[in-house]
Write a protein that binds this DNA or RNA. Structure first.
Length: 774
DNA sequence: TGGGGCCGGGG
DNA sequence: GTGTACGGCCCCA
C-alpha cells in the first residue's frame, strides 16, 4: 500500500517485541498514520586508535551475553574534524548497542562517537527523513488502532515542497494558585483548566476534586484529537504540575495517541506520544524583542487584541477568591491568544524543524546553538564527518568587535554603511572552521601574525562549506520569491525558509565560539573577530582618505556624511580590495549622539524614529521615563525649539509631582539571573525577590521582578516593593522625578546644549512659579 | 569617590 | 547554555 503523508515526529517504539522507529504522520485530511521501520539499526563509532578489532569483539562477546548476537562490527573510514580515521562501527538492536557503548565507555573510555545521539535523530539524519516534510511511503501489514493507520515500512521517497496540511490545534492553559504563595502540586489543587480548539473555549473549574477536571482535559484531548497541543509554559510548569497531581493516583496524564502518557524527554521538554507539544514560552525566551517574555508581548507582536485586564500569576489566587469572573475571562483570552499565536507561527516552526531536522516538538526547546549544531551534524555526515563529542574545556574570553567613540551632538544626513553578513562572509572567505586552524605558518597556510594562528588553504572547512550552502539555498529562494505573489501560501512558506536559513548562517560564528559546542573553536572565533576588526579599520582608513567624515562605527558598520559619490567609491573599494560586500544600510536625516558608544537616536529618511541603547529601549527604566525620553527626543529630532522641549519636560515633571501617573508606568523590571543565594550584593530587585521567596514563591533564574520605589530613608533596596503591593500614597515620587525622568532627559538634551542645571531646576519646580504651589 | 557587581542591550 | 563590547545604576568601603 502507498501512503502520501506529512511526517511530524520520529520516536522509538516497538514492533513485535523489539524496538523500532516509529514515524508519526498525517495525510492532507489530517488522518493519522504510523509507519514502523523495524529495520533501522542503532550504532556508534569507536576510533581504531584506541582499540583493535580483536579486543573489541572480545569485550563485546564477554560483556553482552545474549545481546552479542544482535551486534555487528564493521570497519569504516570516516572523518573527525576533517581528518580521516579508521573507525569500528558497532551497530545492532537499540538495547544491544546501548549496552555495548556503556561497556566500552567503561573499558576504553576514549574514542567513542555518536553514542550520545538518539536513534530517532540518527534515523532522521541518515535516512534524510526530515520532520515536517511530505513523503510517499510504501507499507505492508496495515492495521488500524483507534483512528491510526499503522503500516510497516517498505520504502519511502520524499515529495518536495508541498505546504504542510492544516493541523488540528488545541491550546491549553491552567489556573494554578495558592493562599501561600507559589502553588505546590503536593497540596494545591488545580483550580481550573481552559482549552480552545479554534471554535469553542472550554473551561473546567475546580468543583470538589481536581482529578475530575484533569480527566476532563484528557477527555477534551481525546475528543478534539489535536495534532498539536500548544500552551505557554507547558514544559516548565503546567505539565510537571499536572503529572505531579496525578502521581498521587499512580497514573500519568493520558493525552497522547494510542493511550500515550505525557513524559519528560530530551532537553527537558515534555513529549506527548503521537502529538506535537509546543510551548510558546520557549519561543519568546529566545527573542530579545520580547523584553519581559510575556504572552501579552507575544500577542501584541502578532497584532492580536490584548486582554482587558491582564492578571499577574502572583494575583491568581486573590482573583480566584474575590473576582473569579475576571480571572476566567483573562485565562480565556490567554487560550485564544495562545491558539492564534501558534497559527501565526506554525510556518516558522515547521520550516525550522524541517531544515534543522529537529522534530517540531522540541525545536523551540533547543537553544539556537543546538539548532545550528543539529544542522551541522546533518550536513556533516553527508561529508563523512563523525559528530564530535562535547568535551570539557576551560572557559576563555577573546576580543570582539571594534567600537568607535561617537562624535557627540546632533548631525544631519548621516549614512550608515555596513558589511553584508560580515562574520559569515569572513568565515567563508578565509575558510575558518575548527579543523582548518593551525598554529604554525608552514605549508599552505594563511597566517595571522597578530594573533598567532593561521588557516589552512589546502582543505575546505566544514563550517564554511555549510555557510556557503546556506547562503546559496537562501539566494535561490529569494530569487524565486521575486516572481511570486506576496500574499500567496507559497510565498509565505518560502519566505519562512529563507529567514530560517539566514538565522542559521548568522548563528555559526557565535556557535563556534561557544564553549558547549561540538564544533567549538576558540582560535577560529578569535580569528573571525580579529578579521572583523581589521576589515572595519581598513574601511575607516579608506573612508578618511576619501574625505568622508566619520561620526561613529560599531563592529561591522560606519556612520558617515551622506555623500553618495564618495560612499559609492568606498563600497567599490571594499568589494575590489577586501573582497567583501558593503552597502548603505540606512540614512538618518538627523542623528543624536552622546559621548557614549552604543547609544543614539535618529530620524530616518522615511520619517521613523530609531532609538538605540538609550533608556527608552531598556526595561530596567520605568515606562514613564522611557516614554518621556521618546517624546522629547522625537521632538528634538523633528526640529522642535528649545522652549518646546523644556515645556514638554516640564509637563512630564508636573504629572509626576501631581501624582497623576498610573503606577504601572513606574514599575522597574529586572531579571533574576542566578539562584538568590549566589548574589553577593544587595540590590532592589534581589531584595524584592527574597521577600517574595519568604512569602512562598519559588524564585527561579530567568524570572522578572517588577518593583516600585517607596518613600523612606536608607538604600533603595530597602524601599523597593513588589509592584503588586505598591500604593500611590507611599511611592517616592521624587525618586521618579530625579532618578528616572531627569537622567533620561539629561542624556538626550545635554548633547544639544541644554544643561543639566537647567533641567534640574525645572525638575525642582523652578522657573515655573505656580508649580511650586500645586 | 571610585571600584565592583550586576543588568540589559548593540551588532 | 551562540559570541564580545559597553554604559550606567546601586552599593559599599
Amino acid at each position: 500500500m502507498e501512503w502520501v503523508v506529512w511526517v511530524y515526529d520520529t520516536a522509538i517504539g516497538e514492533y513485535k517485541d523489539r524496538e523500532a522507529i516509529w514515524i508519526w504522520s498525517i495525510d492532507s485530511d489530517g488522518e493519522y498514520y504510523l509507519i514502523i521501520d523495524p529495520n533501522f539499526r542503532d550504532y556508534f563509532y569507536i576510533d581504531s586508535k584506541y582499540i583493535g578489532i580483536r579486543k573489541l569483539n572480545q569485550i563485546l562477546r564477554m560483556e553482552l551475553g545474549n545481546l552479542y548476537r544482535d551486534i555487528e562490527v564493521n570497519e569504516v573510514t570516516r572523518k573527525l574534524y576533517g581528518v580521516e580515521h579508521i573507525f569500528y562501527k558497532v551497530s545492532g538492536g537499540f538495547e544491544a548497542v546501548k549496552k555495548a557503548s556503556d561497556v566500552l565507555s567503561k573499558k576504553v573510555g576514549e574514542g567513542i562517537y555518536e553514542d550520545d545521539i538518539r536513534p530517532s535523530q540518527k534515523y532522521i539524519m541518515d535516512m534524510n527523513l526530515n520532520p515536517c516534510g511530505w513523503y510517499r511511503f510504501k507499507v505492508s501489514n496495515v492495521t488500524t488502532i483507534d483512528n491510526v493507520s499503522i503500516g510497516v515500512l517498505e520504502e519511502f521517497t520524499p515529495i518536495e515542497e508541498r505546504p504542510h496540511p492544516e493541523v488540528r490545534v488545541l491550546s491549553v492553559d491552567v489556573i494554578l494558585g495558592s493562599r501561600y504563595g507559589e502553588p505546590d502540586p503536593e497540596y494545591d489543587q488545580v483550580l481550573g483548566i481552559v482549552t480552545y480548539n479554534g471554535e469553542n473555549v472550554n473551561n473546567y473549574l475546580l468543583d470538589g476534586n481536581d482529578y475530575n477536571i484533569i480527566r476532563l482535559l484528557e477527555t477534551d484531548v481525546s475528543r478534539v484529537d489535536p495534532h498539536v497541543i500548544v500552551g505557554f509554559e507547558l514544559n516548565q510548569y503546567i505539565w510537571p504540575y499536572l503529572t505531579e497531581r496525578l502521581k498521587k493516583l499512580r497514573r500519568g496524564l493520558k493525552i497522547g495517541k494510542i493511550g500515550g502518557e505525557a513524559h519528560q524527554s530530551v532537553l527537558g521538554h515534555f513529549s506527548v506520544g503521537g502529538r506535537v507539544n509546543i510551548d510558546l514560552k520557549e519561543y519568546v525566551d529566545d527573542l530579545p524583542i520580547f523584553q519581559r517574555k510575556t504572552l501579552e508581548e507575544l500577542a501584541g507582536y502578532m497584532k492580536m487584541d490584548l486582554p482587558e485586564y491582564a492578571i499577574d500569576k502572583y494575583l491568581y489566587y486573590d482573583y480566584w477568591s474575590r473576582d473569579r469572573e475576571k480571572l476566567i475571562k483573562y485565562v480565556e483570552w490567554r487560550v485564544k491568544a495562545i491558539y492564534n499565536t501558534f497559527k501565526g507561527l506554525e510556518d516558522h516552526i515547521f520550516v525550522l524543524s524541517n531544515i534543522t531536522g529537529i522534530p517540531p516538538d522540541y525545536v523551540f526547546t533547543a537553544s539556537s546553538g543546538r539548532q545550528a549544531e543539529y544542522y551541522i551534524m546533518k550536513i556533516g555526515r553527508r561529508h563523512g564527518e563523525v559528530t564530535p563529542k562535547v568535551s570539557l574545556r576551560r572557559y576563555r574570553t577573546y576580543p570582539g568587535g571594534l567600537v568607535l567613540n561617537p562624535k557627540p551632538g546632533l548631525h544631519d544626513n548621516i549614512a550608515v554603511i555596513d558589511y553584508k553578513s560580515m562574520y559569515p562572509s569572513i568565515m567563508i572567505k578565509y575558510n575558518i572552521s575548527p579543523e582548518t586552524i593551525v598554529k604554525s605558518s608552514e605549508g599552505n597556510v594563511v597566517y595571522f601574525d597578530e594573533i598567532g594562528y593561521g588557516v589552512r588553504s589546502d582543505v575546505r572547512g566544514l563550517i564554511p562549506t555549510i555557510l556557503e550552502e546556506l547562503i546559496r539555498r537562501r539566494d535561490e529562494i529569494r530569487s524565486r520569491l521575486k516572481s511570486l505573489d506576496p500574499s500567496s501560501r507559497e510565498y509565505k512558506l518560502l519566505d519562512a525558509r529563507q529567514r530560517v536559513l539566514k538565522i542559521l548562517a548568522n548563528t555559526m560564528y557565535g556557535y563556534m565560539g561557544w564553549i558547549g559546542a561540538r564544533w567549538y573553536s576558540y582560535e577560529g572565533a578569535s580569528i573571525v573577530t580579529y578579521l572583523g576588526r581589521r576589515t572595519i579599520s581598513l574601511s575607516i582608513d579608506k573612508a578618511k582618505e576619501l574625505g568622508l567624515n566619520i561620526i561613529y562605527g560599531d563592529t561591522d558598520s560606519i556612520f558617515v556624511d551622506y555623500n553618495i559619490d564618495l560612499i559609492n567609491e568606498l563600497i567599490e573599494w571594499v568589494s575590489d580590495t577586501l573582497g567583501l560586500e558593503a552597502k548603505i544600510d540606512k540614512v538618518f536625516k538627523k542623528i543624536l549622539f552622546t559621548e557614549a558608544k552604543k547609544r543614539y537616536a535618529g530620524l530616518t529618511e522615511d520619517g521613523s524614529i530609531e532609538i538605540v541603547g538609550l533608556e527608552y529601549v531598556r526595561r530596567d527604566w520605568c515606562d514613564y521615563a522611557r516614554e518621556a525620553q521618546y517624546v522629547i527626543v522625537k521632538n528634538l529630532l523633528e526640529g522642535a525649539s528649545k522652549d518646546k522641549l523644556l515645556d514638554l519636560f516640564r509637563d512630564f515633571v508636573r504629572r509626576l509631582r501631581r501624582k497623576e501617573v498610573d503606577i504601572r508606568k513606574l514599575i522597574i523590571w529586572e531579571q533574576i539571573t542566578r539562584p538568590l543565594s549566589e548574589y553577593k550584593v544587595n540590590a532592589p530587585h534581589i531584595e524584592v525577590a527574597k521577600r517574595l521567596s519568604q512569602e512562598g514563591w519559588r524564585i527561579k533564574k530567568g524570572m522578572f521582578i517588577g518593583y516600585i520605589i517607596n518613600k523612606g530613608s536608607g538604600p533603595l533596596y530597602k524601599r523597593a516593593v513588589h509592584y503588586t503591593k505598591a500604593d500611590p500614597n507611599y511611592i517616592d515620587w521624587d525618586y521618579y522625578i530625579y532618578n528616572q525622568l531627569l537622567p533620561a532627559i539629561v542624556r538626550i538634551l545635554s548633547p544639544v546644549g541644554i544643561s543639566e542645571k537647567t533641567l534640574e531646576s525645572i525638575a525642582r519646580g523652578g522657573g515655573v512659579g505656580l508649580d511650586m504651589f500645586v
